[in-house]
């Protein structure tokens, strides 16, 4: 399959069955490099990325993360800095923009990972309080998304997508030009 952007977007799947092979530190750092170039409201960059590779930490995080499936051995915990977001963009920054920012950053991670032949899965089914404690995060740093990253060799079914026609309108809600 070609590796143009649209192909990579379509190729990305949520992987829930990983091989027990570690991803190199260099490759993980490349993924973070992609993350920091995501759009960010008011250029706040309210993000931190905790790369989890240590077996002990990994096991603890997994225990408190029912959504982390398929035994991933590499995790990126995407955190927001709520204090920074509030100071720079008030309530909107703290409650909304920072979450949008890290979502776009996570997508960058997942697309580059796909291009590199890695699987990923964005997970929010974890206990934030427990993960904060395990990672010893300061109070204003919130773990909001975990991206599992790893090698995989199974084919993953492509779930049905709602069509472009169904989900898009021109100019106004329904009734506009299709």
């Amino acid at each position: 399959m070609a590796n143009d952007l649209m192909s990579i977007i379509k190729k990305r799947r949520s992987v829930r069955d990983y091989e027990p092979k570690k991803v190199s530190k260099e490759l993980l750092m490349e993924l973070i490099e992609a993350a920091i170039w995501a759009p960010t409201g008011s250029n706040i960059q309210p993000w931190y990325y905790i790369i989890v590779k240590n077996e002990g930490v990994l096991e603890k995080i997994k225990a408190f993360s029912p959504g982390l499936l398929g035994d991933p051995v590499n995790l990126i915990v995407v955190c927001t800095d709520r204090k920074r977001a509030f100071e720079r963009a008030s309530i909107l920054g703290r409650d909304e923009l920072c979450l949008m920012d890290i979502s776009m950053a996570a997508q960058n991670i997942m697309l580059l990972a796909t291009e590199k032949g890695l699987g990923t899965c964005a997970v929010r089914s974890f206990n934030k309080n427990a993960v904060s404690k395990i990672l010893k995060l300061p109070e204003h740093i919130s773990p909001d998304l975990i991206v599992s990253v790893g090698y995989f060799n199974k084919t993953i079914n492509t779930p049905k997508r709602r069509s472009v026609k169904e989900v898009s309108f021109f100019d106004r809600w329904e009734g506009g030009e299709q």
Partner: peptide, 22 residues
Amino acid sequence: FVKILTYIVTSARGCVEEPKIY
């Protein structure tokens, strides 16, 4: 035992807000 206990309790807590099918 602690591993499975943690998984079950964390799942139970998560289910309060997560999609019903979870």
